[in-house]
């Protein structure tokens, strides 16, 4: 079974971010960049399918050259190959543009399943997966929390967490899946894995290599543009009550009634 996993490099969510003074983006000096958290789960899902069925796991990313490091993490976890599309013409591309580029790469690779994270923790978009499924003409199952591939590898039954329940859906392969964190526990890269990953070649492609133009997928084709980043509205510490239980209860009750007006 041949699996393609889409991987994005993002700022570590543990660390604070600094918005540039002009609000055009974030200041990257000293920023720790890692593989998007959900993509670790996607990579793990790919590796488990390979363990079950044989085949290959290929990682694909679109981003600046530094995104190589995120791919390196996935190779160290055990992926077989990695491809990075890096082209300055993609600055300002929107999500549909990136999804088109991913589709162009994936069309050149054998794929029984394409696996994405549920969302990326920088853009918080949850857009690439389903858009990519459309460009590849594949059926999709998003936000997969449980995955069971049939013995012949012809399709899967997945659980999707929906509001107030779990949807059990059968999806034939080849398919595109986006995954939830509850799907699995990603493995840590092993020491031999890290050594092996260091020696692996990461193929870097440009738009030209893919037969795409900036006019089709770059900023000229983008239908959305980030105007500005701002800090979230500051929340102030409010009133603190330190008293006995009666006072605590009275304070909360009064707050719910008079300020929040929900009682």
């Amino acid at each position: 079974m041949n699996i393609v996993v889409c991987v994005k490099q993002v700022p570590d969510t543990e660390a604070p971010i600094r918005i540039t003074p002009d609000g055009s983006g974030i200041d990257e000096t000293g920023l720790t960049l890692v593989m998007n958290y959900y993509d670790e789960h996607a990579t793990e899902a790919g590796l488990r399918l390979r363990e079950q069925f044989g085949g290959t796991v290929t990682l694909v990313s679109v981003g600046p050259e530094r995104a190589r490091e995120a791919l390196r993490t996935g190779l160290a976890m055990g992926a077989d190959d990695a491809v990075l599309v890096s082209d300055p013409a993609l600055n300002g591309a929107d999500h549909l543009g990136i999804a088109r580029v991913l589709a162009a790469v994936i069309k050149t690779l054998p794929h029984d399943a394409v696996i994405c994270g549920k969302l990326s923790t920088d853009d918080n978009a949850a857009t690439i997966g389903a858009a990519l499924a459309e460009y590849l003409g594949l059926p999709q199952a998003t936000a997969v929390a449980h995955l069971e591939v049939d013995a012949a590898g012809t399709g899967a039954v997945v659980h999707r967490e929906v509001e107030g329940g779990v949807e059990v859906v059968a999806v034939p392969f080849p398919a595109l899946l986006t995954v939830e964190r509850s799907l699995n526990e990603p493995r840590y890269p092993s020491l031999p894995g890290i050594m092996k990953a260091k020696r692996k070649e990461i193929k870097i492609l440009t738009l030209e290599n893919l037969g795409l133009t900036a006019a089709e997928v770059g900023v000229a084709a983008a239908r959305t543009a980030l105007v500005r980043l701002s800090p979230p509205p500051a929340r102030k510490a409010g009133r603190i009550v330190e008293g006995d239980t009666e006072q605590a209860v009275a304070a909360i009750l009064a707050f719910l009634k008079d300020e929040a007006k929900v009682l």
């Binding site: 969510t13 543009a225 980043l229 701002s230 800090p231 979230p232």
Partner: peptide, 18 residues
């Protein structure tokens, strides 16, 4: 023009649809 949380709510993005 849309506003939306980004960077796990550490920033608010203003996005224009063109």
């Amino acid at each position: 023009l849309a506003t939306r949380p980004m960077y796990t709510r550490k920033a608010i993005g203003t996005v224009r649809v063109t």
